[in-house]
């Protein structure tokens, strides 16, 4: 996990844009993200076959998957389905969960972080002690156990990931709120008689927002990886919904004879995660007040 530096609200948005566009890697990441989003959105048009259709001639007589050829461009999976179509539809799952789960984690984390920072006393202490506990809880085991309780579906998987990922967000927000509340403009506003809740809303939220933007983008990368991992362990989205991690999981036992079944979805996960990381990193640099 890449920790974002605290960043301050930019006065001049155009300057941020300029900086973003100057960052070659970030730009590259952004383009790839857009391409993947388009691929996912237009999957029904682009996919050569129905991703769920198990072709009777999609397997050898002994039941082995077919390697890439003219008909199945990326080969078939262990049920004789077209891998390319499954990857394209799988992009929808990965990106949807990436966005939804991450948004939910941000929401929960920001809310609890703000609350803890605002009510510094008992409530704040309780919230932060709870985040301490959740920080120490092995995240993957937590996700696996939660998936066992809540029957996995797309939205439940998103929820599970959010329940695991909110913790760090809460801590970052909490730290920012604490730092900011000692800042001059907050104390002076308080001295001027403004109510604390109002101050929070008016001053703190806009200041926390850029950090969240960076965190949100980087977090999508983590989320996509976690979703794939859960699917790989068999506790992710339910089959036959195509999921990149799920494809690898299903193919694991045939890996040595059909390596393409791991290589292609693995590559898809890698490219997606890298792209969001590049964009997030570029955003952070662009929003960093210490930057050029």
């Amino acid at each position: 996990m890449i920790q974002p530096h605290p960043v301050r609200a930019p006065r001049a948005l155009p300057r941020v844009w300029r900086r973003l566009l100057r960052n070659g890697l970030g730009l590259f990441g952004g383009v790839v993200v857009i391409v993947f989003v388009l691929l996912a959105a237009f999957a029904p048009l682009l996919a050569p076959y129905d991703p769920a259709e198990q072709f009777f001639d999609g397997l050898t007589l002994e039941g082995s998957p077919l390697p890439p050829d003219g008909r199945f461009l990326l080969g078939t999976d262990l049920l004789g389905r077209d891998l390319l179509s499954r990857l394209l539809y799988g992009a929808r799952i990965s990106l949807t969960i990436g966005l939804v789960a991450n948004a939910a984690a941000l929401l929960i984390g920001t809310l609890l972080g703000l609350l803890a920072g605002y009510f510094k006393g008992v409530v704040g202490g309780a919230i932060m002690r709870f985040t301490d506990v959740m920080m120490a809880f092995p995240a993957l085991l937590l996700a696996i156990a939660l998936s066992a309780i809540l029957r996995p579906s797309l939205w439940i998987v998103a929820l599970v990931i959010a329940l695991v990922n909110w913790v760090q967000v809460a801590r970052v927000v909490y730290a920012q709120v604490l730092a900011l509340s000692e800042n001059d403009f907050v104390t002076s506003a308080q001295a001027l008689g403004a109510r604390r809740g109002r101050i929070l809303f008016k001053h703190l939220v806009p200041h926390v927002l850029p950090t969240m933007l960076v965190y949100g983008t980087l977090g999508i990368s983590t989320t996509v990886l976690l979703e794939a991992t859960l699917s790989f362990l068999g506790v992710g989205v339910q089959p036959p919904t195509p999921s990149w991690g799920g494809i690898i999981s299903e193919s694991q036992s045939f890996f040595f004879t059909a390596p393409w079944l791991v290589a292609f979805p693995g590559l898809a996960i890698l490219i997606t995660a890298v792209s969001f990381n590049l964009v997030g990193d570029a955003l952070r640099d662009a929003l960093d007040p210490r930057g050029r």
Partner: peptide, 22 residues
């Protein structure tokens, strides 16, 4: 180097492990 660092941070462990094995 930084691109490689990004690739490392973004690599799905289970797929990487299988590919290394292969």
């Amino acid at each position: 180097v930084m691109v490689f660092a990004f690739l490392g941070v973004s690599a799905p462990q289970f797929a990487l492990g299988l590919i290394l094995l292969y």
